[in-house]
Design a protein around this nucleic acid. Structure first.
Length: 568
RNA sequence: CGGGAAUUAGCGCAGUUUGGUAGCGCGCUUCGUUCGGGACGAAGAGGCCGCAGGUUCAAAUCCUGUAUUCCCGACCA
């Protein structure tokens, strides 16, 4: 490709809308342009990278035996109403009506439609197991689109769905996708971590997320360097740790704590440590009230609590007036003693004695409170959020925290959608069975941003060869020099003939501009045709190298070809 | 959905406090000189100052709405 003919509007300055590296660089490199919040156009360079990622995903899916098909993005409401998700998605679904007032939406994800496809087209149990996938634009009206294409409202996603007749079959289909996902992310050159994810609310039996560690990631990861354990923050199991408590068989005692609502204020007031307190938090779970208790220096894990309570709809903090009604006190003085609602207690609290809790009376707390003696929990379970420094639930070493960008998610769905929509298969014995499903997603456009987050420097993007928009660039230093131009053209032709996706910077620009641009757009390797052109010497520079190396023309061409081939 | 900020040329910004009809840098066009890390000189083009009302002789500037965008948080099959 001739750069003089390429639509590549690079920017010297960063548009004010961008905050993170990948977003800034995609704008500066002329890969994308924003059309509305969370909605982007892809210019040639951006599209080429997106297509390459798609192709890698496609190849690995095909290799894993999945069948590619394509659903519409514009969907009739029916199947979503049948599954209940027309309501569950709520405002995050783009909904509309056609001219006859019939309901439609833009597909946010396609479990329902793939289930319907199986119902309509799979005729015999002999056709199972089957995995189908598509690579398609998805639409979600995010409450807060963010970070360029990392959280956008229209994005490209690969979604796959497996259909099996047995749990063992589901395990096999799931494992095949697991392996394919590892292959995909390895080929993309992403440094990723696989974490256990929450699946409780969906009724599934297992779920893992593929995370690219990055400080700009929106998901928390708890991991252990020693044994390799990694889990989503929401999911990570907590190992209870013991803390120092007042000794002895003490009796509960009410104390006056005026205006001490928070743990910090109490610590100040009473001179105790945060871990000597136990917080009691009132939640509303599907219109029923419950209390959750965790140590003063911990946080309640609402996902765990929600799964434990078996809450279907919403788990949210009770409103202040509700707290007042339940505890007979201002917010900040709730405690388990005499409370008339179920009290869920974190496992860690079981290890404590003589702790401090609210007294359900404004400005009053109890000290020397003990489980069993002073109150009876409804249930004791792991309901807290993991903290860095906690013990690893597998090996006991120290847990660390990181942020991650979720680029893939695999999920054992079970029979949720087959039951809702009626996907059954008749077995050889004539018995009817619900088909067991799995679903598997890769955020294609998000991978693009994730790759840039992991591969950039102060000069711009550093593409891995596998997804670089072009593999090599030939730069004649002086556009007016016929000698340089001729040699550059010759090299460009040789590379192209050898199957290299090459650029030639034939623009009438000064060398500095050409170098800056080629670094910015992240082309993996560059040949510069300059002063020593007459002696048949050019410069060879890999994007990651500090310095260029002088080589003969034929050697440089050979090295570019072998560099590209060996890094693909 | 709650809180905060912004909106002036393609991009980055000043001008708004104290009203007088718009400016800087980059980019763009033309000519010339240049040509190894975002050149220099000269001459240009480009703006209903987000939109709608209001106050005023006069509004980018003051007032009232409204839209859009970004940030923090909530939410995120």
């Amino acid at each position: 490709m001739r750069m003089s003919k390429l639509l590549m509007p690079t920017l010297r300055e960063v548009p004010a809308e961008a905050e993170i590296a990948s977003h800034k660089l995609m704008l500066r490199a002329g890969m994308i342009r924003k059309l509305a919040s969370g909605i982007y156009s892809y210019l040639p360079l951006g599209l080429r990278v997106e297509r390459k990622i798609e192709q890698i995903v496609r190849e690995e899916m095909d290799k894993a035996g999945a069948l590619e098909l394509l659903m519409p993005a514009l969907l009739p409401a029916e199947a979503y109403m049948q599954s209940g998700r027309w309501e569950i998605f709520g405002p995050s679904m783009f909904k509309m009506k056609d001219r006859y007032e019939r309901d439609f939406c833009l597909g946010p994800t396609h479990e329902e439609l793939f289930t319907q496809t199986a119902i309509d087209n799979i005729r015999s149990y002999k056709e199972y197991p089957m995995t189908m996938y598509q690579i398609q634009h998805k639409y979600r009206d995010e409450g807060r689109p963010r970070f360029g294409v990392i959280r956008s409202r229209e994005f490209v996603m690969k979604d796959a769905y497996s259909f099996d007749l047995s749990e063992e079959g589901l395990d096999r289909s799931y494992q095949a996708m697991y392996k394919a996902y590892c292959n995909v992310f390895n080929r993309l050159g992403l440094d990723f971590t696989i974490v256990d994810a929450d699946s409780g609310a969906m009724g599934g039996s297992g779920s893992q997320e593929f995370m690219v560690k990055s400080p700009v990631g929106e998901d928390g990861i708890a991991y252990c360097d020693d044994c390799g354990y990694a889990a989503n923050y929401e999911k990570a199991e907590c190992v209870p740790t013991e803390v120092e408590c007042p000794e002895g068989d003490l009796d509960m005692e009410m104390i006056h704590t005026p205006n001490a609502h928070t743990i910090e204020e109490l610590v100040e007031f009473m001179g105790a440590k945060p871990y000597n307190f136990v917080k009691t938090i009132i939640y509303k779970a599907d219109d029923k009230f419950i209390a959750a208790m965790v140590r003063g220096d911990r946080d309640v894990n609402e996902v765990k609590l929600k799964n434990l309570v078996g809450c279907v709809d919403d788990l949210e903090l009770a409103e202040p007036f509700e707290v007042k009604r339940i505890t007979n006190a201002e917010v900040g003085f709730a405690g388990p003693v005499g409370l008339q609602i179920p009290v869920y207690v974190d496992k860690e609290v079981e290890l404590m004695k003589n702790f401090i809790v609210g007294a359900n009376q404004t400005d009053m707390h109890y000290k020397n409170v003990n489980i069993g003696k002073d109150f009876t929990p409804f249930m004791i379970a792991d309901i807290r959020v993991i903290c860095p420094g906690d013990k690893c639930p597998r090996c006991g070493k120290e847990i660390k925290a990181a942020q991650g960008i979720e680029v893939g998610h695999i999920f054992k769905l079970g029979t949720k959608y087959s039951k809702a929509l009626g996907l059954k298969a008749q077995t050889e014995t004539g018995e009817e069975k619900d088909v067991i499903m799995g679903c598997y997603g890769i955020g294609v456009t998000r991978c693009l941003a994730a790759s840039i987050e992991q591969n950039n420097d102060e000069n711009g993007i550093i593409w891995p060869v596998a997804i670089a928009p072009y593999e090599a660039v030939v730069v004649p230093v002086n556009a007016k020099s016929e000698e340089q131009t001729a040699l550059a053209e010759e090299i460009y032709k040789e590379l192209s003939d050898a199957g290299i996706e090459a650029l030639i910077d034939d623009r009438n620009e000064r060398p500095g501009v050409k170098f800056k641009d080629s670094d910015l757009i992240g082309i993996p390797v560059r040949i510069v045709v300059g002063k020593k052109c007459g002696e048949g010497i050019v410069e060879y520079k890999e994007r990651t190298a500090a310095e260029a190396v002088e080589k003969t023309v034929s050697q440089a061409v050979k090295d570019v070809i072998s560099f590209i081939k060996s890094n693909k």
